[in-house]
């Protein structure tokens, strides 16, 4: 259910970017999802098709691609980075709890693949040139 809300947000954002860019159709959306973002990629895929079909304008046949980003934390005491999922908040090298997450919380829209109708925008400039 959580993922459905996120998918609705993605659709809203992508549809509006697609409209601004006057594209005909969005073919593919690529997301970057961090390992500890709380978003589960397979759940996203589950509701993706339905949501695109019912809630989007330019994304009716849009594929979803997910790039998963590993979670890494940094220890302030011994100044090393380590795997967050494996070791949690405690540094595996020195045992310190003074650690913070460097990457892994991302839920980004990376890019979109769009289709344009060709032979457009050619005369745009000449039309708006001189009006006096």
């Amino acid at each position: 259910m959580h993922e459905l809300g996120i998918v609705f947000n993605i659709i809203k954002e992508v549809d509006s970017i697609a409209e601004q860019n006057k594209v005909k159709e969005v073919k593919e959306v690529t997301l970057e999802i961090g390992e500890v973002s709380g978003v589960i990629p397979t759940y996203l895929t589950d509701c993706w098709k339905w949501a695109c079909l019912h809630r989007s304008k330019l994304m009716k046949n849009c594929e979803l691609k997910v790039i998963e980003l590993k979670a890494k934390s940094f220890c302030e005491d011994c100044e090393t980075a380590y795997d967050t999922v494996k070791h949690g908040r405690k540094c595996p090298n020195c045992g310190s709890a003074k650690t913070y997450l460097i990457t892994g919380k991302e839920t980004n829209i990376k890019d979109i693949k769009v289709v344009y109708e060709e032979e457009e925008n050619v005369n745009e400039k000449s039309e708006s040139k001189t009006d006096k």
């Binding site: 594209v23 073919k27 890019d111 693949k113 289709v115 344009y116």
Partner: peptide, 9 residues
């Protein structure tokens, strides 16, 4: 038709 990638980030 032409296909293009738009970076969003």
């Amino acid at each position: 038709e032409s296909v293009k990638i738009i970076e969003i980030k």
